[in-house]
Amino acid sequence: MSSLRLGLTSPIVTRLPGVAGGWEASAGIAELADIAVAAEELGFEYLTCSEHVAVPTGVAAQRGGTYWDPLSTFGFLAARTRRIRFVTQVLVLGYHHPLEIAKRYGTLDTISGGRLTLGVGVGSLREEFELLGAEFAGRGALADDALRALRASLSVPEPAYEGSAYRYGGMLVEPHAVQPHVPIWVGGRTRRSLRRAVELGDGWVPFGLGRGQLAEMLDSVSPPDDFEVVLPAGPLDPTDEQATAAVLEKTRRAGATIIGVTIRADSAGDHVDKLRRLADLAGLKPTGER
């Protein structure tokens, strides 16, 4: 198999029913840090952490109820790693003012040495919007304006923006992101999310779509050459090399520029062992060889 680009959907921090292993319920930051260090050394490109403030109990059976806060999680992991990137997959735009994101995640970008990728989404959990006093209706248009505001604000000390929902200027935001251009990946499963990603972001992270539907949607747009299409694969058991290789190749052919993998494991140690097998199978270059 030719060399692939792989990112890691972090275990432990988000526990989805039917996907998360039983061991994850008793694992903590120490186990996650060991996995992060191994993933970095093996050549995986990123780790993920998603955002939910509170999930209704009736929804948790389907979506899961465990969601670690990405800012504090990545802040800890930034001190244990040097190269691997941190992807918020996803941060719900309607829950935050753009300058709140620029300050908090700009600080993360600073302390991590420029390793932030903002994965963002419109959000779909009405109860959570209402809990936080955020507007559910019209959230798509609000997200578009927030994205424009973020692009104008993330990497400058004195951001200024005049949009349909957000207007500000004459304010100092320090620290701010050290990357001149923080990558923004848009999550979603609709054509509008793809258009939003192409027009206002740097990548698209779809979910819940068949390969044929993905191909049709991607054929309908003309993204720039450096646009990322981040497709999921897994849960994978890399001990079954033939099946794993087939899934990765199928995902690559569906249009992925980066594949976000989920590993099926029995413990943190088993997860690291399987990361090693997957890295070898995919032809990843260890960080010391770059």
Rank of each mutant, 00 (worst) to 15 (best):
S3G: 00
L6C: 05
L8A: 12
V13E: 06
R15F: 07
L16R: 13
L16Y: 08
P17I: 12
G18P: 07
G22C: 12
W23S: 11
E24F: 10
S26K: 15
S26A: 15
A27G: 09
A33C: 11
I35G: 09
A38I: 05
E40H: 06
E40C: 10
E40M: 11
E41H: 09
G43I: 09
E45D: 15
C49D: 06
E51Q: 14
A61R: 14
G65L: 07
G65D: 04
Y67C: 13
Y67P: 05
W68I: 06
P70L: 11
P70V: 07
L71D: 06
S72T: 15
T73K: 11
L77F: 12
L77M: 13
A78N: 06
I84D: 06
I84M: 09
R85F: 01
R85V: 03
V87E: 02
T88K: 01
Q89I: 00
Q89G: 00
V90F: 07
V90Q: 02
Y95C: 00
I101W: 03
A102D: 01
K103W: 03
Y105S: 03
G106I: 00
T107N: 04
L108S: 01
D109A: 05
S112W: 04
L116I: 01
T117Q: 09
V120N: 09
V122A: 10
S124A: 15
S124N: 10
R126I: 07
E127K: 10
F129S: 02
L131H: 04
E135I: 02
E135L: 11
A141I: 05
L142W: 01
D145Q: 02
A146E: 00
L147M: 14
L147P: 00
A149D: 02
L150C: 04
L154F: 03
S155H: 03
V156E: 02
E158P: 00
Y161S: 04
Y166K: 00
R167N: 08
Y168C: 02
G169A: 13
G169F: 00
M171I: 15
L172R: 15
L172A: 12
H176Y: 12
H176T: 00
V178G: 07
P180S: 14
P180I: 05
V182F: 01
P183M: 07
I184R: 04
W185M: 08
R189Y: 07
R192I: 08
A197S: 13
E199D: 15
G201I: 00
D202H: 14
G203S: 07
P206V: 10
Q213F: 02
A215F: 02
M217G: 05
M217A: 15
M217W: 15
L218A: 12
V221K: 12
S222K: 15
S222D: 15
P224N: 11
F227E: 11
E228K: 13
V229H: 10
V230M: 11
L236G: 12
P238K: 09
P238I: 12
P238M: 12
E241I: 03
A245S: 14
A245I: 04
A246W: 05
L248E: 06
R253H: 10
I259M: 11
I259K: 02
I259V: 14
G260E: 13
T262A: 13
A265K: 01
G269Y: 02
L281Y: 08
A282Q: 03
A282R: 05
A282G: 06
G283P: 10
G283L: 08
G283R: 07
P286S: 07
